[in-house]
């Protein structure tokens, strides 16, 4: 250990020109090290091009130390402090990291029509391609006059299937909200969450076909009544 330090120090002596800008006293060579004294870590020369803290002034230096650096200022902003709290980002942190953020782009832009969850590279609609290859166009937008609009005369009739992109919409789950609106009218307590009650859902689903049957029966009865009454009316005429 001591050998290593001494060899380092020896190298320094050999390399460092006296009175250089490495922090030695003006025109004063580094003090010779006594034979029995072990050099300290603080004596190690700085690396070339090292822009560390300012060196201590020669006047303030005490033997056996030289090239001592000033300690870093305590109030400097470092990773020791919670930087999220420091920059008042707790709200943003809780908002984005507290709950699960939905994966798809359509969850972020629900009002945007079309299939926006597909990768943009597939149909050449990526923003990256817009940056890499900006469209060649003029600097201003001018309205189309009558002559220019003739180019937009279209054939009548529907578009072929492969071009009907406007009609394709990602599946939306809006039924949950509807159920929530009806909840307050229910006599059952609200503490029970809707998802944890599969029986209720089943019941509703089971009820639906019955209701449909009843409605159908009612309709049939009405039709029968109508036919009977109309036939009786016709008979009366005859």
């Amino acid at each position: 250990m001591t050998e290593m330090f001494s060899t380092l120090f020896g190298q320094n002596e050999a390399q460092g020109p006296p009175g250089s800008s490495l922090g030695f006293g003006p025109g004063k060579p580094p003090p010779p090290l006594p034979q029995n004294q072990v050099p300290m870590a603080g004596q190690m020369p700085p690396q070339l091009g090292d822009d560390g803290p300012a060196l201590r002034k020669p006047g303030a230096m005490n033997e056996p130390f030289y090239l001592l650096r000033e300690l870093p200022v305590g109030n400097e902003l470092t990773g020791n402090t919670n930087l999220i709290t420091h920059y008042n980002l707790e709200h943003a942190y809780n908002k984005f990291c507290g709950k699960k953020v939905k994966e798809k782009l359509s969850n972020f832009l629900p009002e945007l029509p079309g299939m926006i969850d597909c990768p943009g590279t597939q149909d050449g609609s990526s923003l990256r391609s817009l940056i890499d290859k900006p469209p060649v166009c003029g600097n201003s937008f001018s309205p189309l006059t009558g002559a220019l609009l003739t180019g937009f005369r279209l054939h009548t009739g529907p578009l072929p299937e492969q071009y009907r992109l406007m009609h394709i919409q990602p599946p939306k789950k809006k039924s949950k909200h509807k159920h929530k609106h009806h909840r307050p009218q229910d006599p059952l307590p609200q503490e029970t969450p809707s998802d944890s009650d599969p029986k209720k859902k089943k019941k509703k689903r089971d009820d639906d076909p019955d209701r449909k049957k009843k409605k159908k029966d009612k309709k049939k009865k009405k039709v029968r009544l109508f036919i009977e009454t109309s036939s009786s009316v016709i008979m009366c005429f005859y």
């Binding site: 470092t78 990773g79 942190y93 990291c97 953020v101 994966e103 782009l105 972020f108 969850d117 943009g120």
Partner: peptide
């Protein structure tokens, strides 16, 4: 833009940035 091009929610970028910042902050501490 990469997130948007991949059809992903750009808020995920913000989330990952904040998580990465906190992780690095903790490492440095």
């Amino acid at each position: 833009f990469e997130y948007i091009d991949q059809g992903r929610n750009p808020q995920l970028y913000t989330k990952e940035c904040l998580e990465r910042a906190l992780a690095r902050n903790e490492q440095v501490k």
